[in-house]
């Protein structure tokens, strides 16, 4: 199937401390998750894209911005009226869009009378009404009651992936990326630091932030034969094929927190990567515990709550951390 490029924009915005210089590309059918730390310029990027093509791009603002003086129906009909449709025709279509996203029954209500979830779906209908080829959603689940998130997510899922549309979705939730997106764009400090498939970004993150979102440990350094030099230590990695030809170049090493073993004494195993250090923080998450550890490098280890109790893990406790070389993936920066 030939891909139709529906979105191809370059954006440059200077706003306060933000220096945004980014480009976005997407093809028909793509759902792009735009992720990055707060203040990295995600919302600004969406608004700039929308401003470049008024009337052709659907944008759902972070706080929705439903017109307070119009009811839900007329909010949705607004864009249709501006496109030249008569009042009754516009309202008829608007009702259809409200029905599509499951809020047809609130057509007569003003925004202040809507719940967060309803308002979000009305905003979605409003953005969709002019059948834009590009749909931009700025944190569509923010400000939505926990009980209503499922409904909104269902509505977004219904409209996001359409064969003749591109959807760009700003989110902080890894689950949204996994559930909705086909592509991920990572924005940090106004620059795109990584763009690729969801698998790409999960398996080979290229920034500390993407690694944290993917839930993996990422070390940045310089490739040497058989490993990665990070400051004073060399992290051994067995993925020889990956290291071939990388020597001397900037590279990343990535490994899962589950691949990290913590022990009170120097491990006797074959692990070549074993460093002394101490626990910085312990975070219990259900049946797992995430332990932040600081030594020659910084990393996160995932252990069982049982292990936490058994070893008496607490901030400041000296422990050894070891990672098998076979668990570490090395790739160029």
């Amino acid at each position: 199937m030939a891909l139709t490029r529906l979105l191809d924009v370059d954006v440059e915005v200077q706003a306060g401390s933000l220096d945004l210089r980014a480009s976005l590309q997407a093809d028909a059918g793509d759902v792009v998750a735009l992720v990055g730390p707060n203040g990295s310029g995600k919302s600004t990027l969406l608004r700039a894209v929308a401003a470049q093509r008024p009337g052709e791009v659907g944008l759902v603002f972070q706080d929705r911005l439903l017109f307070p003086h119009l009811n839900a129906l007329d909010n949705v009909a607004f864009g249709l009226r501006r496109a030249g449709l008569g009042k009754s025709e516009a309202r008829g279509q608007a009702q259809g869009w409200l029905d599509d996203v499951g809020v047809g029954h609130v057509a007569g209500l003003r925004p202040h009378a809507l719940s967060g979830g309803q308002a979000q779906r009305v905003a979605l209908a409003r953005a969709l009404a002019r059948r834009p080829a590009v749909l931009l959603l700025d944190e569509p689940f923010a400000g939505v009651d926990v009980s209503a998130v499922a409904d909104v997510r269902h509505a977004v899922r219904t409209v996001a992936a359409a064969p003749n549309r591109v959807c760009v979705l700003v989110t902080h939730q890894p689950v949204d990326v996994l559930a909705l997106a086909t592509k991920v764009v990572v924005l940090e400090a106004g620059r795109v630091v990584q763009a690729g498939s969801v698998a790409d970004v999960r398996n080979r993150p290229r920034s500390a932030w993407s690694a944290r979102m993917a839930g993996v440990n990422l070390l940045a350094g310089q490739a040497e034969s058989g490993g990665l030099r990070v400051g004073a230590v060399v992290v051994a990695a067995v993925a020889a094929a990956a290291t071939a030809g990388l020597d001397g170049r900037a590279a990343f090493a990535v490994f899962h927190p589950r691949a990290v073993t913590l022990s009170a004494e120097r491990p006797l195993t074959s692990a070549r990567n074993a460093w002394p250090g101490q626990v910085a923080d312990v975070d219990m998450e259900g049946d797992r515990a995430r332990v932040r550890w600081v030594g020659p490098v910084e990393l996160v280890a995932e252990v069982t709550p049982g292990a936490v109790a058994e070893m008496g893990l607490r901030p400041g406790l000296p422990v050894w951390a070891s990672v098998k070389a076979t668990e570490i993936d090395l790739y160029p920066a």
């Binding site: 009337g55 052709e56 659907g58 944008l59 603002f61 911005l65 017109f67 607004f78």
Partner: peptide
């Protein structure tokens, strides 16, 4: 921003 929203809507 309401005016921006209106502008986006054409």
């Amino acid at each position: 921003r309401y005016e921006e929203a209106a502008r986006v809507l054409g």
